[in-house]
């Protein structure tokens, strides 16, 4: 497997607070990877390290086979930062010029075409654009760099639902047109479900689960049945989440094997519930509902 991002024991500390701890992660090439986790889980920290804005406190991080560092090492990485910052005083056309001057691999045709299609006024100042337009402009600058890897840090967090949909739509078009790997973070699974085919769940600064979305959905089962003793479950079951009443048990189980025990009612689990189960640490605090698939 060819990895675009590979982390080993990666940790980051701000002062005395650990923002990311012992993160081992390998993100395969050619995928659209969703990085999901609650606020403060370390998503931004991981992505900022991946684009060389932050140095790791310890551990190793390779992006496209190199240590990320501002400069030529970043030529292959396009980055849309959290809040999609653009220069308030520079026009849309100025932003494209900026990209052209600062990137040897810049594709002016692609940038112009995107600006035209998004109906952005080239003379409009960055500060006068709507949030959605700012995000689109930031994405345009990142994409026209013709990166091998596109990193987006909560790009839609501050957008209204329509702008959010349009942004993700644009992102999917880019993925379809270009040979680019994408890492996209969000604290909302619904955003990722639409575009991602690979998922990394980051909770409390640690990677809780990572894998192909289809595979995750296929190997996770929501079981409900009469109360079961947790010690007597099949050995190959990995219980992600369990909630019990005196009479009933509800489990989210990960296993490659089919569920044979007829005392369990087996439901498929949705991506959102799956992620929520991994995010919630305590038992029984979350009510999972199955979905028909």
């Amino acid at each position: 497997m060819n990895a675009v991002l590979e982390a080993e024991g990666l940790s980051k500390r701000y002062g005395r607070r650990w923002a990311l701890t012992d993160c081992d992660l390998s993100i395969p090439a050619g995928r659209v990877v969703g990085l999901v986790g609650p606020n403060g889980a370390g998503k931004s920290t991981l992505l900022n390290m991946a684009v060389g804005l932050l140095p790791p406190t310890e551990g190793r991080l390779d992006v496209l086979g190199r240590t990320p560092k501002a400069g030529a090492a970043l030529a292959g990485v396009g980055f849309v930062a959290q809040g999609t910052p653009v220069y308030a005083g520079l026009s849309v056309a100025d932003h494209l010029r900026l990209g052209r001057h600062l990137n040897p691999t810049w594709d002016q045709g692609l940038a112009d075409e995107r600006v035209a299609r998004l109906r952005l006024d080239p003379a409009q100042k960055g500060g006068k654009l709507s949030g959605g337009q700012q995000a689109q402009l930031a994405l345009t600058v990142a994409v026209a760099k013709r990166p091998e890897l596109l990193v987006l840090d909560e790009p839609v967090a501050s957008l209204d639902p329509l702008a959010r949909r349009e942004f993700l739509q644009g992102l999917m078009e880019i993925v379809a047109d270009q040979d680019v790997s994408v890492v996209l973070s969000s604290h909302l699974v619904a955003d990722l479900e639409r575009v991602c085919d690979y998922l990394v769940v980051l909770v409390d600064s640690r990677v809780r689960v990572a894998g192909d979305v289809e595979e995750l959905l296929a190997t996770h089962h929501l079981l409900s049945g009469p109360f079961h003793d947790m010690d007597r479950l099949p050995r190959d079951w990995e219980v992600i989440h369990a909630s019990h009443t005196p009479r009933q048990s509800t489990l989210l189980v990960r296993t490659d094997q089919p569920i044979l025990d007829p005392s369990w009612t087996v439901d498929q689990v949705g991506l959102e519930d799956l992620v929520l189960a991994y995010m919630s640490t305590g038992e029984g605090t979350l009510r999972l509902t199955g979905t028909e698939r």
Binding site: L53, A70, L98, L102, V141
Partner: peptide, 18 residues
Amino acid sequence: DAGTYRLAWTQSVSRVRW
């Protein structure tokens, strides 16, 4: 202040050159 360092420093130009 504006957060634009994240735009400026993730282009293909090193921080020293910037």
